[in-house]
Design a protein around this nucleic acid. Structure first.
Lengths: 236, 236
DNA sequence: GTTTTGCGTTAACAATTTGATAATATTATA
DNA sequence: TATAATATTATCAAATTGTTAACGCAAAAC
């Protein structure tokens, strides 16, 4: 009988999520590993950047936790290298950072990280973040979104507002789908570029604006807000 | 843009957690409601699936308890419909089930439930589960600061006071977020410069004052105190 | 095989917002 | 009160975004 199993445990058990941790401090490595194993994740570890890259290729994890400061290649470098390879394009990456330094975080986001955890690591925060990321991952790509009168169907690639179908081009659709996936959340321009255009492609800054404009125009409703100097957010 | 959703969220933090119960048996509805009210939860009820969806949208609960077997739409269907909407992506959902039927439970978990309670309902079990779920939820809560009636959401890049949204420019927001991150602590002018402007940028001393002034003005409340010759601190 | 169509991108410029500073007034404190 | 520190205000330069039009390109239609 499966009753009283909590959702996160079932998910991690069912899907056998694999996590790679890279940190040069053995203590941290051990604490994190212990907590993740407890939640039925499969865990591999690495002591430096190069080892992390090797392990990533061999172990093919679903999520990678990278210490930013490591001997040899640092976390951001590792992230950049991995993101260049199609195999790790969709792999979740979390940075561990000692500082709550905003500059580092921005650099991290630019290199395509999905989240940050600041040291000292609280096991509870860690687990909740990991669980949240997996939950999001498992949900986002599938199914359809419904926000008020706006329907976004990721499978049929279609948008409708108050029953009226709206034809969006691919990039426009992905842009809208991304913003609408978390109403209210401000997506940085870099996040948008990474998610919609991919971390390898380099396009000018105006490109985003123009697509935003097209989406706004086609939707005909004011639901995308500009946060100047930061990014865009969706709010009906 | 004033967001209704955020207002509702703020309210829910202020007035305690909101719970929606959906069950077609009035007795059960009443028992559960009674127990939850006793623990200072805010409670709404629904007698069938469609009503549950309506109530969910209107009441915006933090937790929804769904009877699996209801006339019209059953609990699993309701759950699936709600989970499609980003607004309910993180809402806790508990199923009530009379059977300890394994198949049903798996289906429930697949549709994104967070837990199960088997009937007949034991008030003790019910409360402990509800409390546990909220404890977990509150720990997962990331980035959003709440100080009294003031809410600072780093992710949404938004500030609201008593439910009223306040538009801050980037530097203003970062300045406030920094000060509010440690209420009571006095931040030296140098600390502020390093955190908000970065250690490389050089700006005059008056610049800080001007930004402080703008924040004070926009907030409309006296929560930033000047410590002459030292710096500034936040205190509601 | 050619034409057409539509998408994604960029350039160029307009419009807007932001942030920094100077100049001046005000306040706190020795 | 004298003095240094901060508050206020207006102004301007810089940064950011909005808008339009045009171009290359690929897929679809002819």
């Amino acid at each position: 009988m499966i009753s009283w199993v909590n959702f996160a445990q079932l998910l991690s058990y069912e899907y056998g999520q694999k996590i790679l941790i890279a940190d040069d401090e053995p203590d941290i490595l051990e604490i994190i590993q212990y907590n993740l194993l407890n939640e039925n994740y499969e865990v591999a570890t690495a002591k430096n950047g190069d080892e992390a890259i090797e392990q990533a290729k061999r172990f093919n994890p679903d999520l990678i936790m990278l210490d930013i400061m490591m001997p040899g290649k640092n976390g951001i470098e590792v992230c950049n290298i991995l993101r260049m390879q199609p195999a790790f394009k969709d792999t979740l990456i979390i940075f561990l950072t000692a500082l709550s330094d905003e500059g580092t975080e921005v650099k991290g986001l630019e290199s395509g990280a999905d989240d940050f955890i600041t040291k000292p690591v609280s096991p509870k925060v860690l687990l909740s973040k990991v669980n949240a990321l997996f939950r999001r991952l498992n949900k986002e790509d599938t199914g359809s979104l419904l926000i008020g009168d706006l329907k976004i169907d990721r499978e049929k690639f279609m948008v409708s507002y108050q029953g009226q179908d709206i034809i969006l081009a691919r990039k426009e659709f992905e842009l809208l789908a991304l913003l609408a996936s978390k109403p209210g959340k401000v997506f940085l321009r870099n996040e948008i570029l990474n998610q919609v255009w991919g971390s390898e492609v380099i396009v000018g800054d105006r490109t985003i604006d123009v697509h935003i404009r097209k989406v706004r125009q086609k939707l005909g409703i004011d639901c995308i807000t500009t946060v100047k100097g930061v990014g865009y957010k969706f709010d009906l």
